[in-house]
């Protein structure tokens, strides 16, 4: 009896053992194959992928970019104004090497969808001190390029009208052209050089037409008292809240106060509503807000929080989440919030 039972068990275990062996053998076989592939692949280390590349004029291929990007890179050469000549090689940087060019500023670009930077310098043919560098950032999408443009925008600048989003400072020109964010930085402070750089900017736009940047959310911000220079786009982690993405902001100046208004267009009204609830919970759990009542009952469902003497005011209208961030004065914050609500109501039914 015992012998029979043992035989039966052994027989069934034998089949199981064979199955285990086949599975184990297969796994080991694949691991060996993977190991062999890794072994041979490691001898094919491509240093170009981890260091800046120099694009030689006339070369057909830029190893760090798609062929269309390579063409864009090379076409920068020749766009310089008259009396300027190329001063340096055309350099190209990708996600892995961007910090080799701009060091600690790289993170901001990488978080905003950075694809590639191409840059080169041009010098005046009769004055070696007079040179400028052209930085062409491919940010992937117009929203991304507007975001890095707006986040770095300086105060007290001269707005330029050669395109929708452009300005100049004492020595530099900055603008957005479609998916490109462009900086042209001079080594001298000279209005004539600024004009030369604007000319190159126009040459670039002529060479690469179709660089319009459509940002319909900006229309939701009422024009009265709005500082248009302050318009900005926060792509992610807005106001320290991880779920806040695609937040457009603008600063209003009213009665000596600077009030930051924000607008975010969501896919659906339900999404806007749930995001508002999540933000309210975030303020409550992590910042310890004190909930306040509105002084006037004009915005349905408005939420107001006192954050250590600054006021967070926000509401949902249709698929738009909007509000005021860190207002220094509650009454003025509510005033701007009401104007914002009125404007959005005109556009969202």
């Amino acid at each position: 009896m015992d012998t029979e039972k043992v035989s039966t068990l052994t027989g069934s275990k034998g089949g199981s053992d064979r199955l285990e062996s086949v599975i184990s053998g297969s796994i080991l076989f694949f691991l060996v194959i993977i190991g062999i592939l890794i072994f041979f692949q490691q001898f094919r280390y491509d240093e170009d992928k981890f260091s800046a590349s120099v694009i030689q004029p006339g070369s057909a291929i830029d190893t760090t970019a798609s062929s269309s990007e390579a063409k864009v890179s090379l076409k920068i050469l020749g766009l310089e104004p008259e009396n300027y000549i190329s001063m340096s090689d055309l350099e190209s940087f990708d996600q892995y090497t961007l910090s080799d060019k701009i060091n600690g500023k790289a993170d901001g670009y990488l978080a905003s969808g950075f694809v590639q930077l191409v840059c080169t310098r041009f010098v005046h043919s009769s004055n070696q001190e007079n040179w400028f560098e052209f930085f062409l950032y491919n940010m992937g999408f117009p929203r991304n390029s507007f975001s890095v443009y707006s986040k770095q925008k300086r105060e007290g600048v001269t707005e330029q009208d050669f395109t929708k989003f452009a300005y100049s400072t004492e020595n530099a020109v900055f603008f957005v052209h479609g998916k490109y964010y462009i900086e042209i930085v001079a080594a001298v402070e000279d209005e004539a050089v600024i004009q030369d750089m604007i000319l190159m900017a126009k040459n670039f736009m002529d060479k690469f037409p179709g660089g319009t940047v459509e940002l319909p959310e900006l229309e939701y911000l009422p024009a009265d008292n709005l500082d248009r220079e302050s318009l900005s786009l926060i792509l992610n982690n807005g106001f320290g809240f991880k779920d806040f993405d695609n937040i457009f902001t603008g600063t209003y100046r009213l009665e000596g106060h600077r009030i930051l208004a924000f607008v975010s267009l969501r896919e659906t009204a339900e999404e806007a509503e749930s995001l508002a609830i999540a933000y309210d919970r975030f303020l409550s759990e992590f910042i310890g807000q004190e909930r306040l009542e509105p002084e006037r009952d004009q915005i349905p469902g408005v939420k107001i929080a006192d954050l250590f003497g600054e006021y967070e005011i926000f509401f949902v209208k249709g698929n738009v989440l909007a509000g005021i961030h860190a207002a220094s004065d509650k009454a003025i914050g509510e005033e701007i919030a009401f104007q914002l609500y009125t404007r959005i109501s005109e556009l969202v039914k």
């Binding site: 060091n103 500023k105 300086r154 400072t169 004492e170 530099a172 900055f174 402070e189």
Partner: peptide, 12 residues
């Protein structure tokens, strides 16, 4: 003051 460490503009 702004846009460090590279800056790029005198207004920084």
């Amino acid at each position: 003051m702004t846009n460090g460490p590279t800056g790029g503009s005198l207004s920084d």
